[in-house]
Design a protein around this nucleic acid. Structure first.
Length: 863
RNA sequence: GGGCGUUUAGCUCAGUCCGGUUAGAGCGCUUCCCUUACAAGGAAGAAGUCGGCGGUUCGAAUCCGUCAACGCCCA
């Protein structure tokens, strides 16, 4: 074994061995209960970022532990075709060659995207392998592969037949840059400083005018009405009259509608049914014609008169000036308002009336809410359930058609002769009614439509496959809170509707990995960290360990490189502890399971008792997905208790052949179980060390530890207190490694026991039982009811002990005062649980006794 | 406008759900030690009025109310 831990060396070796052994396949535990996680499929053209690293490290930790526990554990990997995102990437590539997708045509472009997928699409899976993620690659899926495409079509057609998918003319969010409709959640709202322009619309009867206020004056070109609130006393006379629309010379009515906000602007609003969702609704109620004045390129249409062809923002200024010239423009005030932007390209969204496909969500939402309310699915942490409910309860219908080329084609055909719409599971070549020519729908589905089916489509649905029967519903879905709405909510809706079961029983929500400055990592801020660079620099295991250490439930993680470095140092510590056991003590061929000593000596009994406790606590924390607590537990157990204490204690018996056997046995099983506990977190280095320590089979498929319980031996606490006391004494008197004598006054002197020799070794002292004739001229240690005396003669001036002793006394006094204050409180004694009171009394007695003797000692020292 | 999160050591964060130990970790800092697993280490130590105020309680970092600052989501 190398004297230092070199992760790069180890990590390149194990992954292929694991994969080729079939360990990643659930069939490795054919008799186990199934436990399934489906991966949140990354974008096919994406690269691994810190979010994936965290998300994957959690899933891998969960699945590896379940595998070791004997479950038929399946982590199903795959990728998402990511419609807009991928199309944009490929279009950008084409743009570099001065081309657009239209130069290639639809088929050529789609072909180009598939090629792109083939060349770069595998990158992220290589990166996942570098992270050590134990996915079953034999079950890898892609949202556009044949099976999933069939599932998509089945779902679309079924929903259509149920009336839950429909085609309609509605106001949608149009991205003029991506040239497609997008759904409500793909719109980001930002506060922007704009203007509120007041415009006077003259009444046609020549009797005055009504003033409206708008943030978008250019849309007035498409106005077909003015609306006021029916209760607004200012406008009672206006209702029912008509006004003449300036610039367009159109006569339009003033209507009364409850949806008008009386307090906003002038209380009278212009109604542009084709370009605003609220106006559309008002228009429908009052039979106002929608006139489209902005086209899909965000330019004014022919319906916009002399402004036709102008860009929307130019038109905004031009219309405003024209209105001013006409003398109908009133006040122009500064105004902050919320503007929608495309989440992909950040262009300002254009609301417009458009013929699109929608999912009617209400009937799907009801059971999806119920499933979480009744506990069929549980969010961890639970607080996310409220967001989920709130979201679900306020959903508008989902726009699912996209004017893109990359994605699942909408299975609809239109007959030119009889206007029939045919939605079909199989391709249609002629109209079933009139045998006329049909045109296939040009559009594709929202990427999230196929993602919503992921937990069951990946397992073979709609076929009733063995995998579907075995691995569905899945157990836990692990993802960041940023895609609860995009994905989790939709999987719940679709999963329940099509399988009558929740797609997963637990939803584990984690935070986002943030940059060191606390901001979101992003390319534009140039503060992203590449996980693969960290893997190169520190190793995948240290990266995983540091991420899981930091992964407190649901909290964002500001990423700090020092943590990865600290994790690497832990790896080195673990490495060397094992190197000590294997090479210096010769502990090898440790059994893969069991092998715990029956009646071990106290030091061994102690560490075994701790092991059993730690395993049980660790299991509890793991089941609750408290990764940071779980990791902290075994990290501290390993480093402080096993390495710093027990390994040093073991060196005593290891020197004597007769006593060494049980110590070797203990050390072997404790280290072996430590490797098991750490394996889900840091799989590579533990596997490597397993090969050295156990040398049989692989750790990845070893069984989870189940150590027997051991009683905590008497005296361990006394020993540790005395050792720390001696070391402290030594440090405070600058005694270096000098030899010290130590006299011990033990209540039952004869029973001083096993820990004496440990004390000698760990404290580098020569302990003897028996009180000194006079305690004068001695340094003092106290550990419970054991008192230690260190002769000062020849070491230090006895008076030098005074300040140290005074400090110790002051500490004890503080503790005693606190306990006494509690005990002096009658309410505490009467109302606190008896155990708490008893504990407090014990403490008081102990502190009192210690203080008494320390004070006596102080007196004898003459200070 | 509504909701959520955060505020704890010099820095970055646990701990708060479920009240009770002398409030923990990593990094940094101070002192000592190259003790044959590890100097990427060991030992000892300094360092926190747990954001403010009020309340509940025998007891509050933890529960309740309120205010402030910062961040996020929704409208």
């Amino acid at each position: 074994m190398k004297p230092t831990y070199e992760p790069q060396d180890i990590e390149s070796r194990w992954y292929p061995l694991w994969e080729s052994s079939g360990a990643f396949r659930p069939e490795t535990n054919p008799d186990g209960e199934p436990f399934t996680i489906v991966i949140p499929p990354p974008n096919v053209t994406g690269v691994l970022h810190m979010g994936h690293a965290l998300d994957g490290s959690m899933q891998d930790a969960i699945i590896r532990r379940k595998r070791m526990q004997g479950y038929r554990a399946l982590w199903l990997p795959g990728m998402d075709h990511a419609g807009i995102a991928t199309q944009n990437v490929v279009e950008r590539e084409l743009a570099k060659e001065g081309m657009t997708r239209h130069d290639l045509g639809r088929e050529g472009f789609v072909e180009q995207v598939w090629q792109w997928k083939a060349s770069s699409g595998g990158l992220i899976t290589k990166q996942m392998r570098a992270m050590g993620f134990s996915c079953d690659w034999t079950r890898e899926r892609f949202t556009l592969d044949d099976g999933l495409s069939r599932a998509v079509r089945e779902v679309f057609v079924t929903l259509y037949e149920e009336g839950l998918v429909y085609r309609g003319n509605r106001i949608i969010n149009w991205c003029p840059r991506c040239h497609t409709a997008i759904s409500d959640i793909e719109v980001e709202h930002h506060e922007e400083l704009g203007t509120l322009t007041h415009i006077r619309y003259p009444f046609t009867d020549g009797n005055g005018s009504i003033e409206v206020a708008t943030t978008r004056p250019e849309t007035m070109l498409g106005d077909t009405g003015v609306a006021v609130h029916p209760d607004d006393s200012r406008y009672v006379d206006a209702i029912g009259r008509t006004v003449r629309l300036p610039l367009m010379d159109r006569e339009i009515p003033v209507v009364a509608d409850d949806a008008v906000e009386m307090d906003f602007g002038t209380g009278a609003v212009k109604v542009t049914p084709a370009h605003d969702p609220l106006d559309f609704e008002i228009g429908q109620r009052h039979d106002l014609e929608p006139i489209q004045v902005i086209d899909t390129d965000a330019k004014i249409t022919a319906a916009g008169g002399r402004f036709a062809g102008m860009d929307r923002f130019d038109a905004r200024a031009a219309v405003s000036i024209a209105l001013s010239d006409l003398g109908v423009r009133g006040e122009v005030e500064e105004h902050t308002h919320s503007v929608g932007h495309c989440s992909r390209c950040k262009s300002a969204i254009e609301p417009m009336l458009s013929l699109q496909w929608f999912v009617k969500v209400q009937p799907l939402v009801i059971p999806a809410i119920a499933a979480v309310k009744n506990g069929d699915n549980r969010f961890v942490p639970q607080r996310w359930e409220n967001n989920y409910f709130h979201w679900m309860e306020n959903l508008r219908d989902w726009t699912i058609s996209r004017q893109l080329w990359w994605g699942h084609r909408i299975p609809a055909w239109y007959c030119d002769d009889c206007d029939e719409v045919i939605v079909s599971r199989t391709d249609v070549s002629e109209c079933p009614h009139c045998h006329g020519q049909v045109r296939a729908d040009e559009d594709v589905l929202d990427t999230w439509f196929s993602s919503a089916l992921w937990p069951f489509s990946t397992l073979g649905w709609p076929d009733r496959t063995d995998d579907l029967a075995t691995y569905y519903p899945t157990q836990v879905l692990v993802t960041g809170y940023d895609i609860i709405y995009f994905w989790v909510a939709r999987m719940m809706k679709m999963g329940i509707h099509f399988t009558d079961q929740v797609p997963f029983t637990e939803t584990l929500i984690h935070g986002l990995v943030r940059a060191e400055d606390g901001r979101k990592m992003s390319k534009s801020l140039n503060n992203s960290v590449d996980p693969l660079e960290l893997v190169d620099k520190y190793g995948a295991d240290p990266l995983r360990l540091s991420l899981l250490q930091a992964a407190a439930q649901g909290q964002d993680i500001p990423f700090t490189e020092e943590w990865v470095d600290a994790a690497r140092r832990f790896g080195n510590k673990l490495w060397n502890a094992l190197r000590f056991a294997v090479e210096h003590v010769g502990i090898t061929n440790v059994p893969a399971a069991g092998g715990y000593p029956g009646d071990p000596p106290p030091p061994e009994q102690w560490i075994l008792s701790r092991l059993a406790t730690v395993v049980s606590e660790y299991d509890g924390l793991f089941e609750d997905y408290k990764f940071s607590d779980a990791v902290a537990l075994i990290y501290n157990f390993a480093w402080s208790e096993v390495f710093d204490w027990y390994l040093e204690m073991a060196k005593v018996p290891l020197r004597e052949e007769a006593r060494a056997a049980v110590t070797k046995q203990t050390l072997g099983v404790v280290l072996r179980d430590l490797l098991k506990l750490f394996h889900p977190i840091i799989p590579f280095v533990t596997e490597e060390l397993w090969a050295e320590l156990v040398g049989e089979g692989m750790l990845i498929t070893a069984t989870w530890p189940e150590p027997p319980g051991y009683a905590v031996p008497e005296g361990i606490e006394t020993l540790q207190d005395l050792v720390v006391g001696v070391r402290r004494f030594r440090a405070e008197h600058n005694l270096g490694a000098k030899h010290l004598d130590l006299l011990l006054e033990v209540p039952d002197g004869a029973a001083a026991g096993w820990w004496l020799e440990q004390l000698g070794s760990l404290g580098r002292v020569a302990p003897r039982v028996g009180a000194p004739d006079s305690t004068a001229g001695h340094g003092r240690l106290a550990a419970g009811d054991v008192h230690g005396f260190i002769p000062l003669e020849g070491l230090i001036d006895p008076e030098a002990e005074c300040p140290r002793l005074q400090k110790v006394i002051a500490e004890a006094e503080g503790l005693l005062a606190a306990t006494q204050a509690k005990l002096a409180n009658d309410n505490f004694v009467e109302r606190a649980p008896a155990a708490v009171v008893a504990k407090e009394r014990d403490k008081a007695a102990e502190f009192t006794a210690t203080l008494e003797r320390l004070r006596g000692q102080l007196e004898q020292l003459g200070c």
